[in-house]
Design a protein around this nucleic acid. Structure first.
Lengths: 240, 240
DNA sequence: CGGTGAATTGAATCGCGTCAATTGACGTGG
DNA sequence: CCACGTCAATTGACGCGATTCAATTCACCG
């Protein structure tokens, strides 16, 4: 009987199977249960926003299923998606008082919510959690810096190739025939706003990759990578 | 007599007048002295590199004077400057084993160096330092995310305006006549590689701003902002 | 089956990049 | 102190990659 099994039968964390990277994994099981009871569960459907740009940042969230986009909107409507969040990712643990970005669910989504004050109490009392929070922030920073290179210096084809291998690494899976499958739950417009392109350019580059037999589309939201080395070569040393 | 004065007369930290944001400010004075003795001073002249992309990351550095650029180079020579570091900024406190970016001095530069292992010992023993380190990482992350918006969605004019108000906030000062002076110690090429443009475009946009009487050049490396609201309007809601 | 919204494709345009020439800043040696 | 050399910055002419605008085409759902 593992420690994990000691959680009460209906405890949500019991079935929470997110990546071992999740922050809460820094807590031992009893503390985790305690921590978890501080918060609540949250369900969102496609297009619902978790918070808007400028909203007070008084909660932290842990994504347990679904995909969330984090974005900024400029006064004239231009939009930049700063990150896609996958299960296991955290949101809202910045130090500012208000959210610098908006967060919106892409499909059906489940999150754990904890009041930031409570979260910080745990951080103060459990060094392992503080450490995990720091490591997470540092990792996000490294990712953000890589993305600066992409957005500042890469061509459309390179951006798309990098994006696909990124998603493949984070959410890709194998088909029963061993196929290298990559889900694309977000719209072409979302991909464009993530890569600093337009949806038309994203579409064109996808057909280029298709014509070059580097990828194959199973549906609009599921592609297969036929030539991983081709993708890697295009991604040009980044996101190896 | 302040606590600070208790540092021995020749102690480098005594004259270290970097921003109160510097990480070492999280330590009390005796500990600071102890901490400081772990490391050494380092001088670089223009163009000297602190470390290369891929070098083992076994030291942390605190910039006490000068300006340093942090950048990535792609296989075909394209370059993206990820950050300019000013006095008070820290480098190298990422969690990875090796540096993801290169660091190079722009002019004469002084740094404090501490072995990362030593630094981490202090982090483990002084919660205030751990807290400061986290806050710094979180702040850097927020800045990096703002820069994604700039690099992904802003025009050349907006990028330059945002850059100038950025530098003004971090390194700007007042002339004796109250002039709003901004130093530009880095080359046009550096600015271009920071903003995801070319040096020619940077130059053109600077002359546009000059013709629009928004800025005035005192020399190649010192400009005056004549119309801060004009700059702010161009920067388009970002970097307010 | 329509009908609706997203994705794709095509054609024209434009902002920025590229390449080349000129100007300017600054140090050096006569 | 001035002439010259060097290298960065500026300016100009032109080209290209990505955007914009406008059709289709496609996927999906009542």
């Amino acid at each position: 009987m593992t420690k994990r099994a000691m959680l009460s039968k209906d405890h949500p964390c019991r079935s929470c199977d997110v990546s071992a990277e999740a922050l809460c994994r820094a807590l031992d099981v009893e503390t985790l249960a305690d921590f978890r009871n501080q918060g609540g569960r949250l369900h969102l459907t496609a297009g619902q926003t978790l918070f808007h740009q400028g909203d007070p940042a008084d909660c932290v969230f842990s994504l347990t299923s679904g995909v969330v986009k984090l974005y900024a909107i400029l006064s004239d409507g231009r939009r930049q998606i700063v990150a896609f969040l996958f299960p296991g990712d955290f949101v809202g643990f910045e130090t500012q008082q208000s959210h610098g970005f908006a967060a919106e669910a892409i499909g059906d989504t489940t999150l754990c919510r904890v009041l930031k004050r409570r979260f910080e109490w745990f951080v103060d009392h459990y060094p392992a959690l503080a450490e995990a929070r720091y490591r997470r922030a540092a990792a996000e920073l490294a990712i953000a810096q890589e993305r600066m290179v992409t957005l500042g210096r890469q061509t459309a084809a390179e951006r798309l190739a990098g994006f696909l291998s990124d998603i493949q690494r984070r959410a890709g899976f194998r088909g029963r025939d061993g196929a290298n499958l990559v889900p694309l739950p977000m719209s072409r417009g979302d991909i464009a706003d993530y890569l600093g392109l337009t949806k038309e350019t994203v579409s064109r580059e996808l057909t280029n990759l298709r014509k070059a037999r580097v990828i194959r589309s199973h549906s609009l939201t599921l592609i297969e990578i036929l030539d991983p080395r081709g993708i890697g070569a295009l991604a040009c040393g980044l996101a190896a």
